[in-house]
Amino acid sequence: MTDPELIPTGRTSHRYTEDPLWKVVVAVYLLQALAIPTSGLMAVAGVIINYLKQDEARNSPLEPHFRWQIRTFWIGLLWGVIGTVTTFLLIGWFILLGLAIWYIYRVVRGALALNDGRAP
Rank of each mutant, 00 (worst) to 15 (best):
H65S: 06
P37M: 09
L62N: 01
K23G: 13
R15W: 12
T12P: 00
V47K: 10
K23D: 09
L31Y: 09
L30P: 01
L21S: 06
A57H: 03
L41V: 14
P20G: 12
Y29F: 07
S60G: 05
G46I: 02
P61E: 05
I36Q: 03
L30N: 01
G40I: 12
I49W: 11
V26R: 08
Q54P: 00
A45T: 14
Q32F: 15
E18T: 06
L41E: 12
Y51M: 13
K23N: 05
P37A: 09
Y16M: 09
W22K: 01
V24N: 08
L31H: 05
T12I: 13
E18M: 08
Y16R: 03
S60D: 02
Y51S: 08
E18K: 00
D19V: 03
A57T: 04
R15G: 10
V24D: 13
A43V: 10
S13W: 08
R11G: 14
E56I: 07
Q54G: 10
Q54K: 13
L52D: 02
R11A: 14
P61N: 03
A43S: 15
S13K: 04
T17W: 10
A33P: 03
F66P: 00
N50F: 06
D19K: 05
R58V: 01
A33Q: 02
E18D: 15
A43F: 11
Y29K: 07
S39M: 15
P61S: 02
Q32R: 06
V24L: 14
E63I: 02
Q54L: 12
F66L: 02
V28M: 09
S13D: 13
S60C: 03
P61D: 11
L52T: 00
S39C: 12
H65M: 05
R58F: 06
L62G: 04
V47M: 07
Y29N: 03
P64C: 03
V28F: 01
V26N: 02
I49A: 09
I48A: 12
Y51C: 11
L52C: 06
